[in-house]
Design a binder for these strands. Sequence first.
DNA 1: CTTAAAAAATGAACTCGTTCAATCTTTTTC
DNA 2: GAAAAAGATTGAACGAGTTCATTTTTTAAG
Lengths: 208, 208
Amino acid sequence: MAGLRAKQKADKTRRILESATTLFREQGYDSARIEDIAEMAEVSVGTLYNYYQNKGDILVATVAMEVTEVLEAGARIVANPPLNVAEALRTLIEQYYDHSLYYLSKEMWRTAMAISIQQPDTPLSRRYTDLDGQLCAQVVRLIETLQVRGVVHASVDAKAMGEVFFNNLNMMFVEFCKVDAMPLEELKARVNAQHAPIAALINSIKIV
Amino acid sequence: MAGLRAKQKADKTRRILESATTLFREQGYDSARIEDIAEMAEVSVGTLYNYYQNKGDILVATVAMEVTEVLEAGARIVANPPLNVAEALRTLIEQYYDHSLYYLSKEMWRTAMAISIQQPDTPLSRRYTDLDGQLCAQVVRLIETLQVRGVVHASVDAKAMGEVFFNNLNMMFVEFCKVDAMPLEELKARVNAQHAPIAALINSIKIV
DNA sequence: CTTAAAAAATGAACTCGTTCAATCTTTTTC
DNA sequence: GAAAAAGATTGAACGAGTTCATTTTTTAAG
């Protein structure tokens, strides 16, 4: 019977990821013990380590799924954005932010970010960084789309502008995750306050 | 002899920090064992933990010293900046970047950033976040200064602009630390490529 | 079907950060 | 200056992530 192994492997990979995510959500990342994750997934600790390099990798795998979903939702907005820079940006970014806490707690985000910074050379951290790059590219594409439609002045460097917007929204999200008490609405309001005046600048300017 | 204790305490605090920094630089953060740091500082492991809450706190203490120095050097630039937005920004940011790798390796930075994200509620992480805020305020002050001197158009929101510039340079520094092979010059060039067109925008624009 | 080779699973042992009850040192009190 | 109180030091023990030699299961070969 060819493929028995492949099937079992896929099944175990999924079981481990599901068990881990459940326990991370229930008890937080640090409190969820590898031993418990292994038990819940019905594998031994050693086997778990055959499937994931370390505890952090499991979390980052969850985050990667989450970001993938956000990217898909974002693509729809970029395809047909509000024809106003500030509003288009706001719409896309709120999409990102609103989705962010659906599967993952702030603590899980913090841990995942910390891992991707601290061990950037593990395969899954690279995946995370890659997805971040795709998000950035998506913001750039939004600016480019708005430029094509005449909403953004032709002289604007869409790539530079998009990257800077993205790095800002990303950094602000990090700060948001660091403060448990901060509500999503405050994050959105702050980022909007930063972006709106700049958006206005490229919405209607003429270079002299 | 009043103050014997205080003197001994200060001495030990310093010895632990020096030993730790030496070992972090020599062998990397993870490989430097608490036991070795304690031995080098001529205290017991238990004593070390009376002085610092955990291993990460020792590193963050080093980073705090480093950022404090950068802030001082930055203040001199802000007091008398080049009278051109792109150049002023470039000067300040290169000051930040050039200083960054003098005491700390990329690996140490990554670890420090990861800690400050993951455990934002420890006193020293709060200190780190606070210093970050001061750096941000310094960039805002640069834009304000340029605005006062007529280099930046009066209609520009200096706070929003400065914050966005800072978050961008900060995020780019994170990415820089994640890629061991990237030289400082590449980081500078990339950030400059992002900032220059935006700087040009606020340097000479008229709102229509 | 048997057997050899390859792949996967296992869990006890190891490492290293962290804790804490017991001990020692300094300061204060009288 | 002796005794008591407060403060500081210590290192063995603990806990949790990770490793790896051994065992078990699956696949391939004859």
